[in-house]
Design a protein around this nucleic acid. Structure first.
Length: 596
RNA sequence: GGGGGUGUAGCUCAGUUGGUUAGAGCGCUGGCCUGUCACGCCAGAGGCCGCGGGUUCGAGUCCCGUCACUCCCGCCA
């Protein structure tokens, strides 16, 4: 007989009746009846009820076991009597009558309860992640992640993509997020950086003639965390294709995304991936990642307020402000309107104007000042009904859009307008190539310096830079940005010219992006790609509100690994080898003793 | 860097207007129980109420500061 098991804890059935089996696993739970004792033994595969009575020589040993101890049980499979069958259990038809038991590993009192559906606090869960991961939901989430990634691989390979591995130690790149740096022992004063994404490498794979690249790629960015943004590192389905236009990339990605959502989620998937221009999205939804489940569209009503008797807005409009109107279906009460207004103030806005529509007249301070005619004009323009309200955000275009967008989500959530049973995708297209830095007034790349401007070289030379669009696109699902991509520029002169517009001379391009600019000069195929975020996809499919729920060993919000105690101080000897000397540190956390 | 929320037993939480000895469920320890499957019953241990200061006759509760976690803004090509 095998040392540890003949069966796993999820596979014994009536067919094994009366046979001797050996199973190993964790003591999930005990039910002690004094002279009769049940042990639920759990492993990765399932749960098997084992039973022993006081006449047995191992009874006291079994009785003394603490939950989560690891044991090997030898026994005989017994069919349960009809009344004692447990239909909730895959192995509920049988039980194992214990004949012998070996303790493989004893468990101390637990810092969190493995056999409970109730989550412990996150700090405890992360510190004892290996215990947390034994629990049903976290265990399932990680398995789901694995299956999704497997499915993605198959779908990509089936489409003719080739999987590559790109370097983890690479060069710091000036664009984008803050880099993680790694000191170079052999090169005093120089540093490697962990890749924020394999962006340049995947383009160079295209220039190496491989045609279709993909990778389940780790990406490293030293930026602050959010519920849908794990600090430090995350994974992307990174892909790139040669000789393609935007539509070809969409056609490659849509079936993969649609396919895995259909395969792994029980929810409906809206088959239409709507295309929305960046400008439209910002106007109608207040951001570039609209949640299309919310049936509310924002409108611009600046013209209606211009020169009106609602002087606060009228004056702001004179100074360049805009007014955005957010319909509030069934929000037509003082209570709701006041709540929205104080919410807006808590968001840092001066407030949120509103009009309440009823069968009699348009009500509220705005309606009073604006007059019934204009108030009703808004009502008809926005297709509002009696009992509805409309809210107004008046500020600079950027601030008004953002506030309106947040108000839209707020109304959708509060009024229960979000259909939780569906995934709605959209492509946000036509991102601007450049944008103006609000403080410095400088023109900068708005997304990615490697994107191809729409109109190419001619557009760069003839159009207002702020009017130029890029072949740049995002894939959004239920208000979460899943993915960002572009048709890339592959022409050296376009790269020089684009950087020139952003205020960088050719020497900057050559110093900072030597590989790209050189490769462009030796025959570069037109190419483009995209990089859907794996963690976010799994999070959506698993229906988890937090990205850490789908990551095996996540860091906490301050980018600490509580389980491994990372980051940690290092020996001076290590620093010496790396030519690193500690400067005076202002942080109060400097070399504080690790907890635990 | 800024704003909100939370912090009470090993874990999840309750704790009234400031008022005796700070509670519950789970877990832990001991006892009882032969058909449970979140078994049941009895008893017990376990608390610097995050930390520091203040107000008060009296603080888990009010005030100030601070720390930790978390959500959001900034940031994230």
């Amino acid at each position: 007989m095998h040392l540890y098991r003949t069966h796993n804890c999820g596979e014994i059935s009536e067919n094994d009746e009366n046979s001797e089996v050996k199973i190993s696993g964790w003591v999930h739970r005990k039910r002690d009846h004094g002279s009769l004792l049940f042990v639920d033994l759990r492993d990765h595969f399932g749960l098997t009820q084992c039973v022993v009575d006081s006449s047995d020589k191992v009874f006291t040993l079994v009785e003394s076991l603490r939950n989560e101890s690891v044991v090997t049980i030898t026994g005989v499979v017994k069919k349960r009597s009809k009344e004692t069958i447990n239909k909730n259990l895959k192995t509920g038809q049988i039980e194992v009558s214990i004949e012998d038991i070996t303790i493989q590993s004893e468990a101390d009192t637990l810092p969190l309860q493995v056999n409970s559906d109730e989550d412990a606090g996150e700090e405890t869960r992360l510190r004892y992640r290996y215990l947390d991961l034994r629990r049903t939901r976290p265990h399932k989430n990680i398995l789901l992640r694995s299956q999704i990634i497997q499915s993605i691989r198959n779908r990509m390979v089936d489409q003719g993509f080739t999987e590559f591995q790109t370097p983890i130690l690479t060069a710091s790149s000036p664009e984008g997020a803050r880099d993680f740096l790694v000191p170079a022992r052999l090169h005093p004063g120089k540093f490697y950086a962990l890749p924020q994404a394999p962006q340049q490498f995947k383009q160079l794979v295209m220039m190496s003639g491989f045609d279709k690249y993909f990778q389940i790629a780790p990406c490293f960015r030293d930026e602050d965390s959010r519920a849908d943004r794990s600090p430090g590192e995350f994974y992307q389905l990174d892909l790139e294709m040669s000789f393609v236009e935007q539509g070809d990339v969409f056609a490659a990605v849509e079936p993969v995304i649609k396919g895995i959502f259909e395969q792994f989620s029980g929810k409906k998937i809206d088959p239409i991936f709507t295309h929305i221009s960046y400008a439209d999205s910002v106007l109608k939804y207040g951001n570039d990642k609209p949640d299309l489940r919310i049936p509310i569209e924002i409108s611009d009503v600046t013209d209606i307020f211009r020169g009106s008797d609602f002087t606060i807005f009228a004056k702001n409009i004179e100074n360049g402000a805009v007014v955005r109107a957010i319909p509030g279906p069934k929000c037509g009460s003082r209570a709701v309107a006041d709540r929205m207004n104080s919410w807006a103030q808590s968001e840092g806005a001066p407030g949120l104007g509103y009009i309440i529509y009823s069968s009699e007249e348009a009500k509220g301070p705005v309606a009073k000042a604006l007059g019934q005619d204009k108030s009703n004009l808004i009502k008809s323009k926005l297709n509002l009904n009696d009992g509805d309200a409309v809210f107004f955000a008046c500020a600079s275009e950027k601030d008004a859009s953002a506030l309106a967008g947040r108000a839209r989500v707020r109304i959708g959530t509060e009024q229960n307008l979000i259909d939780k049973s569906i995934f709605k995708f959209c492509w946000i297209v036509d991102f601007p190539m450049f944008e103006k830095d609000e403080i410095t007034g400088k023109i900068e790349f708005s997304h990615n310096p490697f994107s191809m401007p729409q109109g190419g070289m001619e557009a760069l030379n003839t159009e207002d830079p702020l009017e130029i669009k890029a072949w740049q696109y995002d894939l959004v699902c239920n208000g979460i940005e899943l993915s960002s991509g572009a048709i890339r520029n592959h022409l050296p002169e376009v790269m020089y010219r684009a950087f020139d517009i952003a205020g960088y001379g050719p020497q900057v391009v050559e110093e900072k992006f030597p590989a790209m600019i050189n490769a462009f000069k030796f025959g570069a195929p037109p190419h483009g790609g995209i990089a859907p975020g794996i963690d976010r996809i799994v999070m959506l499919i698993a229906d988890e509100p937090n990205i850490r729920e789908v990551i095996l060993f996540p860091m906490n919000g301050k980018a600490e690994d509580l389980m491994m105690s990372a980051p940690s101080p290092v020996e001076d000897k290590q620093l010496n080898e790396l030519h690193i000397r500690k400067a005076h540190i202002h942080s109060k956390n400097w070399q504080k003793d690790p907890k635990q």
